[in-house]
Amino acid sequence: MESRLTRIIVKIYLIVFLLYLFAPLFVMVIAAFNDSKFPTVMPWKGWTTRWFEDLWADDRMWGAVGNSILVGLAVVIIAVPIGTLAALLLDSIRGRTRSFLYGLMVAPLLVPGIIIGISTLIFWNRIGVPSGLHLSTVGQCSFICSYVMLMVLARLQRMDRSLEEAALDLGATHLQTLRLIVLPYLRTALLTAAVLAFFQSFENFNTTLFTRGGATTVTIFIASRIRTGVTPEVNALGLVLITITVAAAVIYTIRKKNTAAV
């Protein structure tokens, strides 16, 4: 329906846009193989895999990975139940209370991460809890709960309430109804929420920066590597993370398509 000229212009724009989108990824990948002391693609000094070897041998990196996984799992364990319970609550109240609670639950998504980190740090310090990964976990949970809540709520709102009533009517207790009817119905949403929560936590930098105490997570490790001795090791790590993410994205998309088809 658009004129041919517009279509051509839009096509060109899209190509440029996609180049812009992916240029950094290419640069990152190529720099990881450049045999140059500094992370760059020009000048090209020849192929090498030594940055990967360096990375593999880097104990600090492994420590950081361990910490990130630990925090990520802790966040999943805390945020998924809390977000789910909050969504269940929100789903069955109406009116003013609901709007108020909803506002409070969504607000953390709009607060800059460093402010979440700072407020968490100060609050716990004032009641005598020193900073460390546990505070990073708590700080991250405060907004990751919001994501979980929104995902679960979206699913709950499509659930037929009479299923719960039927279970109760057949003699199930409230807990049995939750376990046998509601949770199985939410299964996919909960799994997705858990994966997303883990990713969000793994990616987090701003909140962690202020709450971590002396501990290092993957993002903190990368940032400190970039600011101090810049080496292509970072690019090597980047490539590894890119591979994992792209694989995850592709699997997720395919799975979503499959479940949508059912």
């Binding site: 009479s162 039927a166 009517d169």
Partner: peptide, 18 residues
């Protein structure tokens, strides 16, 4: 409802789909 000696057949049946 779970303690009453009644069983309700819902207008939409409410069979458990899973």
């Amino acid at each position: 409802p779970n303690k009453r000696p009644t069983a309700l057949i819902f207008q939409n049946l409410a069979l458990f789909p899973l």
